[in-house]
Design a protein around this nucleic acid. Structure first.
Lengths: 215, 215
DNA sequence: CAGGAATCTGATGTATCGTCAGATTCCGCG
DNA sequence: CGCGGAATCTGACGATACATCAGATTCCTG
């Protein structure tokens, strides 16, 4: 199971070294422009210009702008395993809270790096786009599963209430983390520091998962 | 303070009855199309066609597609006060959990009705668009403020921990609600019913606000 | 350095954008 | 009535982006 499928020509042929590099530069230009313009304004012509090539070249590698973004999403998803490892950490007592913190921090950093791209991923997924929805699901579900398992364990132990559906709770928490991560800049403007935000989210995370407030 | 500013011509003139109706129909068409197409594919020509008018007419009332969506967002924001009222309800014991439930339910319904539009609102806000950011802020901050106040009270009472920043916590909860509301269809496909989701979210809400698990 | 594969691009037909100047509709008033 | 001006709508247009393909260019390999 390769994380990313081998890059191809639009006609399905595998890519040589020169092509690979061109494709790479196109992707970089796409991500860079996506940080400045809104998705709606992102133009193929502009991406091509930025790389000093022609629009036709772009279409050699991608069906359209969204296809390029899809590739960027795939690439950014490769970071996730590192975050998942955190979840496997200890959840008892003070160590548990540290684990929660690490997860929140991981998410915020992930979004700091790839916010523009992940934003589009979620947009397209919510709009019902098959490819984006699937990609979002496969990258996020290990995280969700893992959290859900923990919640399930604490539920067995009688610490998390019956009304809580572990899977729904895990998803809710991830949902919260994603949106907060993409928003934390705005909070700083409103006088809430990034640290306070991380701390607060971590506490919600910890409390929801373990059924106890953090020490 | 009028919720929505009086509709104007692009040149600033106030609108007569016929114009008002045309504008209205354009808005409806925009919302309808937004439910089918993705934002990126939403075309002025198509909106105009749908109403049986010419693109030029559209530009008479809106600077561009996003301007029309902005108007739709304003309109949908008029519903929020009803949700806010819920928050003012009781938070003690079982009544408190009912309050939490009502809030979650309000959000889900709100998103069921206006998901497509709200999605764009959040996208544009996250992309840094001034108008959308401001609008999002002014419509959501009463909700956030109100929740934060409650959390603050329970903090005073020693039930919510010091590490929690009321404002950050309130924002996080709203963030969670928004995203879950826009996603709940997907969960149903995965075997989690809407009720379970609402129930679970309500519990997280209740626990975070009051510092105690729901009865 | 010839020949073929890999890669890139100019040219093109189609479509949307956003803007006016002018056409059409509406309505009050003589 | 029907005239005149205000309100509203639209045809037409230059500019720009889309997406495709045949042909040009570059890069090897033998």
């Amino acid at each position: 199971m390769s994380a990313t499928r081998k890059p191809q020509d639009q006609s399905g042929r595998p890519l040589g070294p020169r092509a690979l590099q061109t494709r790479q530069r196109l992707l970089e230009a796409t991500e860079e422009l996506l940080q400045k313009r809104s998705v709606r304004e992102l133009r193929v012509v502009e991406i091509a210009r930025q790389v000093g090539t022609s629009p036709a070249t772009f279409y050699q590698y991608f069906a359209d702008v969204e296809d390029a973004i899809l590739a960027l999403v795939e690439r950014s998803a490769e970071e996730l395993p590192a975050i998942i490892e955190q979840i496997e950490g200890p959840w008892q007592g003070a160590r548990g809270f540290a684990t929660a913190r690490a997860i929140v921090d991981g998410f915020v950093q992930h979004w700091d790096r790839h916010g523009a791209v992940l934003r589009v991923r979620n947009l397209k997924a919510e709009e019902g786009d098959r490819a984006f929805r699937k990609l979002r699901l496969t990258t996020l579900s290990p995280v969700v599963e893992s959290l859900a398992k923990r919640i399930g364990e604490f539920k067995e132990a009688g610490r998390v209430q019956d009304g809580m559906n572990p899977w729904a709770a895990a998803s809710s928490l991830i949902a919260m983390l994603e949106r907060m991560s993409s928003y934390h800049q705005n909070f700083e403007r409103a006088g809430v520091t990034r640290d306070q935000l991380v701390e607060t989210c971590a506490r919600i995370l910890y409390a929801t998962i373990t059924g106890r407030q953090a020490g």
